[in-house]
Design a protein around this nucleic acid. Sequence first.
DNA 1: AATTCGTGGTA
DNA 2: TTACCAAGAAT
Length: 294
Amino acid sequence: MSVLHEPALAWYADHARDLPWRRPESSAWSVLVSELMLQQTPVARVLPVHEAWLERWPEPAALAAEQPGAAVRAWGRLGYPRRALRLHAAAVAIRDRHGGQVPDDHAALLALPGVGEYTAAAVASFAFGRRHVVLDTNVRRVLARLVSGVELPAPSVTRAERELAGGLLPDDPGTAATWAVAVMELGALVCTARSPGCARCPVADRCAWRAAGHPAYDGPPRRAQAWAGTDRQCRGRLMAVVRDSEAAVPEHRLEAVWPEATQRDRALAGLLADGLLVRLPASDSPQGPLYALP
DNA sequence: AATTCGTGGTA
DNA sequence: TTACCAAGAAT
């Protein structure tokens, strides 16, 4: 074990958070659900939703038996509600193609809706102890600092990063899986984006970025995520109205939360195209068409 | 390859 | 207050 692995693994053994999807008794389904929810969403907001989700749908087949809209409603305000649709579709695929069991190999996981390179590696590694390069935003930042000596990684994953991470991966699958989650945890708790806690870092004495005097980020500027007035804000408002209503919603209630018609119509069309909403026939309502979850 | 896609906490 | 950030995926 190297001068990096030993202190990092020891630190993880002492400081790892007790997260529901990390417990020995937690299922691969619990891990998969957590990974979908954690895509671009902080742990603190995922915790209560994940707990309720596993309580209601303890296995993939239970979710697969529901309408997609049930998943969207239970998703609540986690954001990016297409992930709820994808998780439901993944549950259907697991029921139909994998006998109701979450697949344990990377290729089969990658074929599931909503599962990309990172999530496939994470589930294979964390739920099944397989040896994979798990490259998320935390790992990328830790390796950028520790090894490459820069504050932040490039905007998108590079081949060099993947090779670097692969070169550091322990040979033993079980140790590799622990290493992966340990580096991720280190990035989440110590080597954070805003204020790195070098004083608490188990590998600070080996950190290239620290040795170089913490030089500031010197890469291409990342575009800020615009929000006010965007289609995403509009979509969020529209979805909130339907999600928070038990009954189907008449159009005037959507108009009330976004008066500008052109953008509202565009956002609504997008939500219908994405399958996040359905339009019910106007013949059933004197107020015109109604909108509901699928 | 660059864009799009929610939401809320924090410095 | 504004800007950044959070276990990415799909197109």
